[in-house]
Design a protein around this nucleic acid. Sequence first.
DNA 1: GCAAATGCCGTATCATCGATCCATGACGCC
DNA 2: GGCGTCATGGATCGATGATACGGCATTTGC
Lengths: 249, 249
Amino acid sequence: MTPAEKTAPRSPRADDDSALRTAMLQAAERLLAESTDNDIATRAVCEAVGATQPRLYRLFGDKRGLLDAVADAGFERYARHKAQLEQTADPVADLYVGWDDHMAFAMANPALYQLMFTPRPRSHSQARTRILELLGAALLRCSAVGALKVEVDQAAQLILSANVGVAFNRIAQPGLFPESLSHQARDAVFGAVLTEPATSVLEHPISDAARQLHSQLALNGSGALESEETSLLVRWLERIVKDVPRSGK
Amino acid sequence: MTPAEKTAPRSPRADDDSALRTAMLQAAERLLAESTDNDIATRAVCEAVGATQPRLYRLFGDKRGLLDAVADAGFERYARHKAQLEQTADPVADLYVGWDDHMAFAMANPALYQLMFTPRPRSHSQARTRILELLGAALLRCSAVGALKVEVDQAAQLILSANVGVAFNRIAQPGLFPESLSHQARDAVFGAVLTEPATSVLEHPISDAARQLHSQLALNGSGALESEETSLLVRWLERIVKDVPRSGK
DNA sequence: GCAAATGCCGTATCATCGATCCATGACGCC
DNA sequence: GGCGTCATGGATCGATGATACGGCATTTGC
């Protein structure tokens, strides 16, 4: 962060803090995975890394801060893993892979997964929000090719909700929840937000085209317009998109 | 449970235990709803009802047993509430009402709802299973009128997973998750498990008819067959239902 | 180069919580 | 009326989250 401090260890304190912080996070995640009650003791984390309790409390504030940091670290690993396997030429296929990968992460790290996605009061963890952003980026690519029939944010909320719900249900009922059910849920939600690949019949071609252009603008921008013009165009497009009449129940 | 013990308070101990148990459950649920961290102290529960800790531990075993009992009590209230508003002539309409009612219960009792549906290790609470059974019963009525295009248990798991996922997401993001998203998720999942009311085109008429008959048998039985014949018929129907080829993708 | 200032460090400690021990007493039974 | 059985609850234990406080090293100022 600080631009100073050359290669020489002018101030080893910051490096020590950073190394200790990561060591504590790793120990906390390991202890959480090994725990029988999905809980950890700050003492155990300190003993695992050979540090004292005040150091942990100066680094993380309190236990909730430690757990928030563990959840965020879990998101970082999740994001790194996702960055490797996504981004093919077919954004819709990426979406399917993304669901299955999300489920695999949940089943491989059930305790960490619950920490990341169970609502905790006064938690400042950004894992959920960041994953929503990742999902939104993947959906934006889908929308840019006209594969999305709802707005990106709505689709992201729907998909993440379903994904979390299925993962929790599967964690709660190990064995009783076959993978086929996960795929059924996946196809159901995707069917509700994605356009049919075969059916090119668009119910609202105007708003669909507007949404596609809106996504393309968000992705690539436009070299033909000034920034003020682009921002106004974006607002117009949003009005067109929102003007679509609700399809009947 | 025990058939003995007439109206006279032959053994007032059992009544005291029962009254104390319900009082502790009510206090625990109230304290849980008022808590800032979704947790309660056994001491606080005991003080709230004027009892000592050993009494609580003899009634519930340990804290987990108390929380399990609170979750099950929450299910009882949920079930009583549901028994009042369901069971109209249209089972599909009941299903829609059931989803919205589930969401309302979650938003009205967020802490209790998380206790009921967050996977807790070694928990013996039956709330989740019992609610699956309630949902299965409602789905069986739908299946009996040919409104279901998947098996009852699968549909129940899908719907409950989605419902819990949406509820958790809405609890985690109060305000950011509008009710319209809940309805979108509801319609998406229902669209995946229910037959289109307008479209009478059945892709697999044989298995659909078999499933409908299977549901009718489970609901009303058959006076024309002996019990052995019925059980064999049920097995045959199940084979027919499972024989349906998977739809594409 | 030295002394004062600053702030981090760790020992020891507090407060709370889940859970249980054990002396006490009530109750039923003979 | 004596005795056995068992629930009872005050007291307490071990673990845990969190912190006060003296000590020491690094930094600052001259």
